[in-house]
Design a protein around this nucleic acid. Structure first.
Lengths: 336, 336
DNA sequence: CTGTTAGCGCGTTCAA
DNA sequence: TTGAACGCGCTAACAG
């Protein structure tokens, strides 16, 4: 077997085929103004030399890399994974590549990675829940084309899930079950995802003066949820609403470990609708965020931007309330 | 605020600083043979113009992209996510970028993506469980530098989890609990991951003639596991060993839905040790594959390759048996 | 229809 | 120490 020829260039192909560089370029790029005979010759030569045009050189001359960057807060979180997956597959279908960057839930990294990855790609899709709004506004200017996920900034194309409405739906669900004292396990204080939820809670409080919704600072992962269990038990709440499913799972587990029965003693609801929420015991009531769809739509926006077509209008998807066994009638309501 | 200057080139900086292109290049790259005065001038000019050298142009002239490709079978699978996460963070720490490609569990895609992504990166880290060995052997030649995850080929650097030993440990665990009739829910027929498990099973059969281990064709996800439940129930097995945790979770759920008690009626064990396995009911006995570590080590190998240092010797990590509530004494054994 | 020429934006020789 | 010129590998404009 011939050694895989390193550094075969277009000149080598041209020499072997007995034509000029441009003819090789044209032939290989399907330019119709080339004699079919020569096309065949060129293709043969290219095949024989195992030639493929240097992507970097093409990128330089064409001014585009066929690659987009995606910045996510945590590759370990199923929600962002689903977004990335949907995005990656959609982009691949359009022959685009995806450069990923994990900001490790850090504001600094979100900022740095966005600009760093942008320099070697044609655009960046930003999922940066922690970045303060003013910084985001400032950042996106120098990043274009940009698509935002779960954020907005000026008229930058964006796709988002309506966290507020979804949380309201969950609260309403709990209220209908008779819950009047509810605790909310909050996520990262600075994040917009958390802010959206808090806003919905505030509106709910006003609409339902009979119901007491209190916040407990918590976090975004298993450990945070488990660590919050004592605080939840100490409160006199009959239902706990977690920032996301990971928190809910951690909480659920810790609660049950200390003898608390769910949903008999306490109802627990999550958020995001990760696949695993279906397999806890009891299965988790949650709001199903169509994350993969969000990713695919984000790509769609980016594609339009890259083709300098009108980007689709901002998209807002409504997560679907998914009622499962972890929520039930309020303990108090049952007694009365 | 000045418009973010598009297309500021090194010439613009040179003009503004009143020096030549080469001086700008040298100054910005920290070449010590430049007059400190000029360095300052250049830096000022660059800052004023918000200049950053084109990554593509640098890549072309330097012959390296500071980017590696990672091909994974499914971005939706927690195990590969963990690998990607560990890899991505390790690479980022060394100022490298990561291009991801999701082969969607397809052999064709594994093959195509590997070469396609290689062309725009400095190397590829391949996690391709489906690719037949001969194809893999042929492929890696033209891909170098390459690092393999959970595969081997010639003396290509690789990192892997010892699936065989881990499965043996699980079988031994079940055997010790008195199980003598065990079903194995097999994964993708062609995959090496599956082959490694089957091999371990065969060895176990020989070592334990008293135990009957039968395979049931299954799959690699929730649905496959759930769909296999009837077959598992129809068998007279007292324990089921799933290809991975996803399958185990699907199975667990379907079994319980049809009234089967785990582990009293049937023990269930998974594989991979995904975080969620801890939150099923009962919690899942499994083998914890250090996936993030695998990813980090894969990067480490790649880094050594890129620095043309001696790549570390092939690494094999042993997954740790994690016994939880889903496995218990065999129903039969308990009666006797 | 084909070949020659000129860049894409940068790093790096080679002289000065 | 600095600048001018060359080349990375390729595509596109311009002639022929």
């Amino acid at each position: 077997m011939p050694r895989p020829p390193k550094g075969v260039t277009i000149a080598d192909v041209a020499a072997r085929a007995g034509v000029s560089l441009s003819t090789v370029s044209r032939a290989l790029n399907g330019n119709p103004t080339v004699d079919p005979t020569l096309v065949a010759k060129v293709q043969d030569a290219a095949a024989a030399l195992d030639y493929t045009a240097s992507a970097v050189a093409r990128s330089l001359v064409l001014g585009r890399t066929q690659t987009v960057a995606v910045v996510v807060p945590d590759l370990g979180n199923p929600t962002f994974q689903a977004i990335l997956r949907g995005l990656s597959r959609a982009a691949a279908a359009d022959d685009y590549h995806v450069l990923v960057a994990d900001s490790a839930e850090s504001v600094d990294e979100e900022r740095v990675l966005a600009t760093a990855t942008r320099r070697r790609t044609d655009g960046v899709i930003l999922c940066a829940p922690r970045l303060p709004q003013d910084e985001l506004d400032r950042l996106v200017g120098g990043l274009q084309p940009v698509v935002l996920i779960n954020r907005a900034s000026g008229d930058v194309p964006s796709v988002r899930a309506d966290y507020g409405s979804a949380l309201t739906a969950e609260l309403t669900h709990l209220h209908a079950l008779g819950h009047r004292r509810i605790v909310f396990l909050a996520g990262a204080p600075g994040s917009v995802a958390n802010a959206a939820r808090l806003e919905a809670i505030e509106a709910f409080r006003i609409a339902h003066p009979d119901t007491d919704v209190t916040e407990i600072p918590c976090g975004v992962d298993f450990e945070a949820g488990a660590a919050a269990a004592p605080a939840v038990l100490e409160s006199d709440a009959t239902a706990a609403l977690a920032f996301n499913d990971l928190v809910a799972m951690g909480l659920l587990s810790a609660l049950q470990a200390s003898g608390c029965r769910v949903p008999d003693d306490l109802s627990v609801a999550g958020f995001d609708g990760i696949p695993f929420a279906q397999y806890t015991t009891p299965p988790l009531t949650t709001s199903a965020v169509p994350a993969a769809e969000l990713g695919a739509q984000a790509w769609s926006r980016m594609r339009e931007l890259l083709e300098s077509a009108e980007p689709g209008h901002p998209l807002t998807l409504l997560p679907e309330l998914t009622v499962r066994g972890s929520t039930g009638p309020a303990a108090g309501a049952r007694v009365s």
